[in-house]
Design a protein around this nucleic acid. Structure first.
Lengths: 114, 114
DNA sequence: TTAGCGCATAATGATTTACTTATATAATAT
DNA sequence: ATATTATATAAGTAAATCATTATGCGCTAA
């Protein structure tokens, strides 16, 4: 089976981006569900600007997409990114984070419907 | 097929470590051959202390091993690390770097014999 | 024993990072 | 229109990062 390779320089950039617990967890969460900023704020217990800055970095790297839904902005995995196979195989090694979603729902804080 | 998972926090630490072009390239090179510090110095065109600091980080994380051979210290991949499967699948996506070894040999600068 | 080589460590400095608070923008609800 | 909610951006700051130069230590060879 062939594996798609990625330039070392580009890979290092992606790895640096994901070498942050918050962003890495975000991306793992986005593997299975979409999230809005305010949900991330609830989950990660940091300020809203901090979350905005994290998702912006993910977006600038082309790893996620944003779409407005009313007053919310929903973030989702960009599966068309040329580095998606790399990222996917990476987060495949991480434990599922759906329990965070369930915590949100238990608190009645789940926004997006997908 | 089952895949071994790795804690998110530990994964983020590894990714931050490899989110550096020099260290990432080193690790890819060590996938197929052992190297000593002076060879890395030649290849990466940075100071010897800079290289020492990079390999030390890789060693502290348990990703590489060192062994003294005369006046040289040879670094090799630690395939017994509990995160080796994660690291391996990651560098598997990177292009082979053996051309660097061949450049060394062409210049008569290859040290370690493995 | 002394000189030279390979490597590690210490000290320092410039840059980057990840947060914070304050404020601006955009959509919603009254 | 005005207030509220969700998000983005700006500005500032402490800490981490990655390089450098200077120096110490261990092995080899004369």
């Amino acid at each position: 089976m062939e594996i798609s390779t990625i330039e070392i320089e580009k890979a290092a950039t992606i790895l640096k981006l994901l070498g942050d617990k918050t962003r890495l967890t975000m991306l793992k969460m986005l593997e299975t569900h979409d999230y809005c900023v305010c949900e991330f704020v609830e989950i990660f217990k940091v300020s809203q600007p901090a979350i905005s800055q994290h998702v912006r970095k993910l977006k600038d790297a082309g790893l996620v997409r944003e779409m407005r839904r009313g007053q919310w902005i929903i973030y989702s995995m960009n599966k068309d990114s040329d580095v998606f196979p790399f990222v996917q195989s990476l987060i495949h090694h991480l434990p599922n984070q759906d329990f965070k979603l369930q915590e949100l729902e238990a608190q009645g804080l789940r926004i997006s419907c997908d």
